[in-house]
Structure formats: structure tokens, C-alpha cells
Design a protein around this nucleic acid. Sequence first.
DNA 1: TGAAAACTGTCGGCCAGCCGACGGACGGGC
DNA 2: GCCCGTCCGTCGGCTGGCCGACAGTTTTCA
Lengths: 224, 224
Amino acid sequence: MTPHHVAKPPTGAAAYWLNAPAGGAPPGFERRQLAKGTLLATPQAREDRVFLVQSGRLRVYLAGENRELTLSFLEAGDIYTTHTPTYVEAVAASTLWLIDTPAFAQQLASDPGVTPVMMRVLGRMLANAVHLIEDLSFREVPARLARFLLGLVERRGQVCEAGWRVPLELGMEDIASLLGTTRQTVSSLINQWAREGIVSREGRRSLLVHLPEALRALSSKAAC
Amino acid sequence: MTPHHVAKPPTGAAAYWLNAPAGGAPPGFERRQLAKGTLLATPQAREDRVFLVQSGRLRVYLAGENRELTLSFLEAGDIYTTHTPTYVEAVAASTLWLIDTPAFAQQLASDPGVTPVMMRVLGRMLANAVHLIEDLSFREVPARLARFLLGLVERRGQVCEAGWRVPLELGMEDIASLLGTTRQTVSSLINQWAREGIVSREGRRSLLVHLPEALRALSSKAAC
DNA sequence: TGAAAACTGTCGGCCAGCCGACGGACGGGC
DNA sequence: GCCCGTCCGTCGGCTGGCCGACAGTTTTCA
């Protein structure tokens, strides 16, 4: 969870546990391996759990009638709690440390140093949620997509002759789900921008951004 | 912050401080009086504060180009933190206790009993935010409004001959802002439902709900 | 108690973007 | 190589609901 709905600021939060009780299991945590596709949590089965991703990749999402909205991807080092009624699914084989909330609360009480870390994590999730709400209710799809791409540039972009090269391990469908829109809309927009020379494709798994400024303009203003 | 974006479950969270360090100022907190209309926080001026409402009524909201989205109303006993980039405005004269976050963190460290309370509050805010996201991206306006009204019935409804009487201190505009829609749409919907006998008005500050089941149906399904 | 200000109801125009559909491109197994 | 499953591009129709406008109503407060 970070700006623009995609994971990964080196939190340091998780590192606190991962390294401090170094190597072995932190007390009270249970290790679990998940095969790709496993559902770890659903809004129905409310078992309050806190967990810590050691490796792999999980997707946190909400589901409606005929659409899904991805809230974030979790990767190694991320921490999450099933307090909130979301689905959590392993999109790749993953291993994680789990603990149930009451036990975890006890940990918190006994080790006061952990508290601020936990607060920071919750705070980050909240800020992220608020950001999403803003996007959904104030910004139209082109603006959201532009921001999203800018975020990618900022986070993963590599300079190259004609601009920035961005690795793109997500498909159109996935991006749409992060932005609360549809495959088709995302696809059309990107191709339109390609025609306008703002971006260009380089195979399916990579994107070149030529004119970040253009994206920036699109991201703040409404439609043209 | 509670189901359906409107404040007030007897949290007990705030009571913890309000009563425990009874009467006087909890250590480190500064008392502040706000006149109606004062802006306590904006996304720009990021002074991290935690505060506690003693009396009055505040509105927490986001603002876009030409629309505002109310996240929640805070009333006596509520606690909030300006961690998240929102506006907070006194919609009535209010008095509250403030403390800045670092000092507050210290409090937390010294009094471990406070931690779970704080976690619960943050958790509640998060759950609420997720709920709003769900509404915004999956449910259409009629469904959102129906849920909202049901929430009111559940929380404030009083039985009467013809159904439930709900006090309504919010105007159409305010409701719209809570639901992420417009004055006009809310107004039309309510009046349409009135014509269908599902609800009826009783002056501006009160609403009668005759057929909660009808609302319930509307709240789960999409349009007719 | 009367004028001004703030709310409310309703209508029609308009458009972002959802949906279904379909054909083409890629990619991996065998 | 060939087949099949998945992903991508594009089109047209359709509609929820936003927006502006305006007339009526209630509230405020001088």
C-alpha cells in the first residue's frame, strides 16, 4: 500500500519483526505456505488475523457483483491485518507468518516498542484508503490512469533514450482493477496516448513514457 | 465513523480518557474552543495532531474541484487524528482536547493500556473507509441511499404507528455529500420513494420509513 | 413581520464510461 | 509446427447520474 495503490515503500515496519527476532519464528507466529490462488481471507470468514509476508505476492481486494477492486498488492516484508472485510488471495506461491489478533495484542502490550510500528502501518493503510476514495469520487479515469503511470515511473522507471522505461508486470485487466474501471477503458486510453506520442508500448511487459509532463497535466485536470 | 458513514456507536474508546483522567485536562492535552465554521485541519497544513471531541460537531471531508465528500461527522466522545489528508471543520461551536502526535506517542508508550483503544479507533476508521470504497465503486446511488436510511433507522429510529420515525438533522445536500452524489439525485430518489409509499416526509427534520424491507431490497440489488 | 438567505423539487440536456461482442495477437505446451 | 487459452484493441449502443436552471418553500434575523 502506497501512493497510487501499488505496494512497496521500504517500510522498515516489517523488518522490525523479521530481523529483530532474527531468523526463527517470532513468538506466537505460525508459519504458513500458500499455493498460488489460495484465498487467505474473505469478508465472510472473519477470523481476525495479523500476518507478515515473508515471500510471494498477495492481492488484497474487494468484490462486487461483476467487478473486483484491488486495494493493494502485498509483497515480502509487508504486514496486514484481516480486521477489514477484504479478500486476500495469493497470486503467487507465498509464505507468511500468522498470528491471531488477541495474541498479537498481547505481544503489543508486552513489547511497547512495537506499538508505534503498528500505528504507522495502520496509518499507512488508512492514508492509502483515503487516497483511493479521493480518486474514485473526484477524478475521472484518465486522471487516475495518468497518476498511476506517473507513480510507476517514479518508483520503477529507468531512464532511456526516449524517456522512461517502466516494467509492467500487470495486465490491462489488473490495472483496471486497481483503478476501479474496466479493461476496455484502460486499453483505449493507453492506446490513445500512444497515438499522441505520450507513451509507447514495447512488448507486453514494458512501457515507455515519453512525456511525463503530459501525464502530469492529465492527472491534475479533468477531461480535455 | 460507523457503518453508513455516520457517527456514533458508544465507543467507550474516548470515554477511556475523558473519564479516567477525570474532569481536568489529560496530561499533555491542550483545550481548544472552535467557533462554528473554523477549519481545524486541511490536507495542506499537515500538523500531525490527535484530538478528542468534548462537545460540538465536526465534519471530516475531502474536497475536489466542485464537490465535497464527507467522510464522517465527529461528536462528543469521538477521537480523530489528522494523519490522513482530510479537512476537518467545526459545523457547530465545539470544544476539544488536542495533542500533537509525538507527545501522544509518548503517552502511548508510558500507558500500555491505551494502545488497544487506539488500535480499535484506527481499525474502525479503516473499516469505515473500506466500506465507503465499496459503496463508491460497486453500488449505485439508490443502493447507497437505501443503506444510509436503513442505518439511520437502526441507529436512531423510533417505532411509531406507520413505521419508523427518523430524526433528520442533515439536509439533502449533506446526505448527498456523505454518499458521494448530488443534492438533486438524493432529492429525486427520496421523493420517488415517497410516491411509492416506502417513506414519507414529516417536515424537514424528520422522515418516516414505512417499508424497511423495500429499502433493504434496494440496498442489495442494483437498479430496478 | 417582511425581506433576504438558505433550502428543496423537478426537468431536460448531455456525456463518461460500462457492457457485450468479436477478431487479432501472443505464448506455451507437446 | 499447430492448437488452445489468455490477453489485447476497438467499436457502438445504452444509461446513470451530473449539471444548470428555475420556481417554490422554509428559515433566519433585522
